[in-house]
């Protein structure tokens, strides 16, 4: 099966190791991974700030970039959600709307792809740590991917996974919200970290680099000993 990887801008620049783990896991599951090199960003920063004309240009570029791909897989729930959002962006443009719909039909979040398309729930990982999982809002509410990451994590050998209290509450990232509304975002991420601490986890696992950058950045500023990891890193662990 041929899979086109959409790495996302954060993944490309800040978290290339998440991309490497994603590639290795997919290859182990017999996928041929290709990287359409014209890819850029999904356009979320512009879209969520209300710059929709600008977003349309980006969306068209991404639609063209992935036009030939059978499957597009990305290790970031909110960027995949944004691909799905393109359909509404072209509400008044039938031609591009159809193309956007086709892109959405072929695009999957990384864990969703493994569980729902490849029908695999155990990727043979082992990771002996106490951890908890952060459900990202866009991935769980808008994309509707809730169970896939849990199924995969449950099958990780040695992983002690505890439930995160108030897991449905946003971590305070929200893209530009995190820099436009700093005092509010700060309280939200503080509360999230308090809940993580309640679980006594050594590692916080997530599936969206945006949330992880927010929670991780705050944890580091507070000097707390909690490690933040993308789910691909955990699923590619052998020890």
């Amino acid at each position: 099966m041929k899979v086109s990887l959409f790495i996302t801008c954060l993944g490309d620049v800040f978290y290339p190791y998440v991309g490497k783990d994603t590639v290795e896991i997919l290859e182990r599951l017999n996928c041929e991974v290709v990287f359409p090199k014209n890819q850029t960003c999904c356009g979320q920063p512009a879209y969520n700030s209300g710059y929709h004309k600008e977003t349309k240009d980006v969306a068209k570029h991404m639609i063209k970039t992935f036009e030939q791909s059978d499957y597009i897989v990305s290790p970031s729930g909110s960027c995949v959600t944004m691909f799905h959002e393109y359909v509404h962006l072209f509400d008044h443009d039938k031609e591009w709307q159809e193309k956007a719909q086709s892109l959405a039909n072929r695009t999957f979040e990384f864990t969703q792809f493994i569980v729902d398309v490849l029908k695999v729930e155990n990727v043979g990982a082992s990771f002996s740590k106490r951890a908890t999982y952060h459900t990202s809002c866009h991935m769980s509410r808008l994309l509707g991917v809730k169970d896939a990451p849990m199924k995969l994590l449950e099958n990780v050998k040695g992983l002690e996974l505890s439930n995160l209290p108030n897991k449905e509450i946003c971590c305070g990232f929200g893209g530009t919200f995190s820099v436009k509304m700093v005092p509010i975002s700060e309280q939200m991420v503080n509360e999230k970290i308090e809940h993580i601490e309640e679980t006594d986890a050594e590692v916080l696992i997530g599936a969206d680099c945006g949330c992880l950058m927010n929670i991780g950045g705050r944890i580091e500023r507070q000097g707390k000993p909690i490690k933040v990891m993308h789910i691909a890193q955990v699923l590619n662990s052998r020890g």
């Binding site: 809002c137 509410r141 449905e168 990232f173 929200g174 893209g175 919200f177 995190s178």
Partner: peptide
């Protein structure tokens, strides 16, 4: 803008 667009 006083929303993280979390959709809760």
């Amino acid at each position: 803008y006083a929303s993280s667009l979390c959709a809760a």
